[in-house]
């Protein structure tokens, strides 16, 4: 469980979206320092909106959101630099001409601020981040030449180079083969244990994270459930959210048909 109960992200009856189209409604949720939180829910349940809100890219239309005790509207760039973000695979152009080290160095830019050039210290931080994800040997390799799993490791290193307090990961295993999925999740768990990072992991893969997270947050436009995995992953709760798309096997393996139909 988490080291302390100091909330660093606090949603207080917050709703997000545009007038007439509410993506997330009346969310009250606190994420504490050092916690490992998994966010699950069917397609269109507001997972990505939650992610954008935590990043300070979306202000609540109702209610409040506080990040590091700072109202979301007033979030400044140096606050954002404290959140390391791994976007969904496919959002970033993987053929962009950039090396592994150049990619990870970008993680330093927000923290450095304008007019300051990255120096030897930043390079050392970037190299340390690369060694955390075991990609330091590939620092001069073109990003586009790496496999999907290796690229994900590099993007995690980029987020780590920010020296963040929170690591926000949006579907980090999507599009990876089974071995790479397993390796990436193990890496995230290892980073949580070793660096005492607060981790918010958005995923559709319930089975992959259920034994690793402190808490699961189940979304379906509203906050449907939040608590230890054993409390959230009950057939009656899940079937209310996923409906007939849900299959629970006799070994308690949860299969959500809906996701595979849409991807």
């Amino acid at each position: 469980m988490s080291d302390s109960l100091e909330p660093i992200i606090r949603f207080d009856h917050a709703s997000f979206g545009f007038p007439g189209v509410i993506a997330l409604k009346d969310i009250s949720l606190s994420i504490n320092a050092g916690e490992f939180v998994g966010v699950i829910g069917p397609n269109g349940s507001g997972k990505t909106t939650l992610c954008r809100a935590i990043l300070g890219l979306m202000a609540p239309v109702e209610g409040h959101l506080h990040i590091f005790d700072c109202a979301c509207d007033a979030l400044r760039c140096h606050h954002r630099a404290k959140i390391g973000y791994l976007p969904q695979k496919g959002v970033v152009d993987r053929n962009f001409p950039v090396t592994v080290l150049e990619t990870v160095m970008m993680g330093r830019y927000g923290a450095l601020g304008l007019f300051t050039r990255p120096g030897a210290k930043d390079r050392a931080i970037a190299m340390e981040a690369l060694s955390h994800v075991e990609m330091d040997k590939h620092k001069d390799t073109a990003l586009g030449h790496l496999s999907g799993g290796q690229q994900q490791r590099v993007f995690i290193a980029r987020a780590l180079a920010q020296q963040p307090k929170v690591l926000l990961l949006d579907e980090p295993t999507t599009g990876l083969d089974m071995t790479a999925q397993h390796n990436v999740i193990e890496l995230i768990e290892h980073l949580h244990d070793e660096l005492r990072l607060t981790i918010v992991l958005i995923t559709h893969d319930i089975n992959m994270i259920r034994s690793r997270v402190d808490r699961l947050v189940l979304l379906k436009t509203r906050l449907f459930a939040s608590g230890p995995p054993a409390e959230v992953l009950k057939p009656d709760i899940l079937s209310q959210v996923y409906g007939k798309d849900l299959v629970i096997t006799d070994k308690d393996f949860i299969i959500v048909e809906d996701y595979h139909h849409h991807h």
Binding site: L55, G56, L57, C77, H78, H79, R80, A81, K82, I83, Y85, P87, V91, V92, D93, F96, V98, T103, M106, G107, Y109, G110, A111, L112, L114, R117, P118, Q162
Partner: peptide, 19 residues
């Protein structure tokens, strides 16, 4: 450095604290 970052991914740059 900021120009390179927004060329790479503008939203990621913004999320990382770059204006």
């Amino acid at each position: 450095k900021e120009l390179y970052f927004i060329a790479f991914d503008q939203e990621m740059a913004e999320a990382s604290g770059v204006p």
